[in-house]
Amino acid sequence: MRVAGARLASSTLTANKSFLSDHRLNLKSFGLNNVNARTKFNQNLSLTTTTKRQMASAAYKPEQARVPPAVPLPTPPLTKFKIGLCQLAVTADKERNIAHARKAIEEAAQKGAQLVLLPEIWNGPYSNDSFPVFAEDIDAGGELSPSTAMLSEVSRRLKITIVGGSISERSGGRLYNTCCVFNTEGKLIAKHRKIHLFDIDIPGKITFQESKTLTPGETPTIVDTEVGRIGIGICYDMRFQELAMLYAARGAHLLCYPGAFNMTTGPLHWELLQRSRATDNQFGEVLATTEHEEAIIISEIDYSLVEMRRTYLPLEKQRRGDLYQLVDVQRLNSQ
C-alpha cells in the first residue's frame, strides 16, 4: 500500500508539472512570456482556486450541521492543570470503600491534582443484587448518603473539583447509576444518571443486564467547574458517539467517563473507545495509562493543545450541514 501511495503521489506530481508546462507554452504562443504577464496569470489562477474553495465551503453549510448551532467554546478558567484518576479495588464493606476512596482522593490532591475522578460504582460491588443494598438517597444527603457526604467534605477541605465516579442512587422508588460532581466549595453542582444501560449477552462469556435493576437517565450532563466545562458520561455511555458530539456542541472542554469495564469486552474496547471519543473532537492522544491493579494516575491537561489542533484541522468549518445534522433535542425544545 505504501508503494502504491508513493506511485500515486509521483504520478500526481508529474501531472502537475505537465499542467504548468502546458500553460507556459500557451503563454509563449500568445506572446505573454514576460514576467508581469506570468504574475498576473498566476494571480488569476490563485483567485479562481480561492473562489472555488469559498463557494464549496458555503455550500457545505457547516453552521447547519448542528441544530441548534454549536455553542462557541468558552474561555476556560485556566489553561493547564493536573488531573488525578483513582483506580480502586472495591469490597462488600461500604464503610471501608468510602474510607479507601477518601484516602485516594487525598493522595491525588497531595500530588497536585485540581480535578480528581473516581471509578464507576466505587462504594460497593457491581451487581444487580448489590445495587439496592448499597443505594443512597443523594438528594437527602447526610446520613442517607454517606458516600456523597464524604465527597462534599473532601472537595471543600482540599479545594478541589471532584467527579465522583458513580454510586447506585435511590430516588422516587427507582434506582439509578449516578455520578456526582462537586466544586471546590463542596457543593453538588451536577448529577448525571447513566443514560445507556449495559445489557449484554455473549454466550459462554458474559451475561449482564443493568436494566433488570436500574432505570436509565434522561438528561445529558454538562457542567461548568473551576477547571472548565465538563461533559459527563458513565462507562457504557462512551459507546455512543452522539453524546460526545453533543457535549462538544455545548462547548465542553473535557469529557469524563468513569467506568468499570468487564474483562471480556474491556481489554478490547476500553482504550479504543476513549481514544475514539477524543478523536471525534480532535484530541486522541493517550497522556497516561495503567494496568488492572489499584493505581492513582496524575497527568497534566493542556487546553491550548486542543485549540491548536482545531486550528490546524478546522473540522468545524468542514462539516456537511447540507448532508447531515446532529440534533440536540433538549436544546431545541427549550428554545
Rank of each mutant, 00 (worst) to 15 (best):
M1N: 11
S11W: 12
F19W: 11
T39A: 14
K40Q: 14
F41E: 10
N44D: 12
L47G: 12
T48K: 14
T49K: 14
T49V: 15
T49E: 14
T49P: 06
T50I: 14
R53G: 09
Q54K: 12
S57W: 01
S57L: 11
A58W: 09
A59Q: 13
Y60A: 12
A65D: 02
R66H: 01
V67H: 02
P68T: 01
P69T: 05
V71Q: 07
L73I: 05
T75N: 15
P76D: 10
T79W: 10
T79A: 14
K80M: 10
I83D: 02
I83W: 03
A89G: 14
T91V: 08
K94Q: 15
A99C: 13
A99E: 15
A99W: 11
H100G: 13
A101P: 04
K103C: 13
K103N: 15
A104Q: 11
I105V: 15
E107M: 12
A108Q: 09
G112H: 11
A113F: 07
Q114D: 11
V116P: 05
V116Y: 04
V116L: 10
L118Q: 05
E120V: 08
I121F: 06
I121H: 09
Y126A: 02
N128M: 06
F134N: 05
F134A: 05
G142N: 07
G142D: 10
L144G: 04
T148I: 05
T148C: 05
A149L: 03
M150W: 09
L151P: 04
E153M: 11
R156V: 02
R157C: 06
K159R: 15
T161H: 06
T161R: 02
G164K: 06
I167T: 05
R170F: 06
R170C: 02
S171D: 04
N177T: 04
F182Y: 13
K191F: 03
I195C: 09
H196R: 14
F198E: 09
F198N: 13
I200F: 12
I202S: 13
K205M: 15
T207D: 12
Q209R: 15
T215A: 09
G217V: 04
E218L: 07
E218N: 07
P220E: 03
T221R: 03
V223K: 07
D224H: 06
R229Q: 05
I230G: 05
G231N: 02
I234F: 03
R239Y: 14
R239A: 12
A244P: 05
A248S: 03
R250I: 03
R250F: 01
G251S: 02
G251K: 00
L254N: 04
F261H: 15
G266H: 12
L268P: 12
L268R: 15
L272K: 15
S276R: 14
T279G: 14
Q282V: 04
V286D: 09
V286C: 12
V286A: 12
T290H: 13
H292W: 15
E294M: 08
E294W: 08
E294Y: 08
A295P: 08
A295F: 09
A295H: 14
I297D: 09
I297K: 11
I297G: 06
S299V: 06
S299Y: 10
V306G: 03
R309Q: 03
T311N: 01
P314H: 00
L315W: 02
D322Q: 04
Y324D: 05
Y324W: 06
L326Q: 01
D328K: 00
D328W: 00
D328N: 00
V329H: 00
L332V: 00
L332Q: 00
N333A: 02
N333E: 04
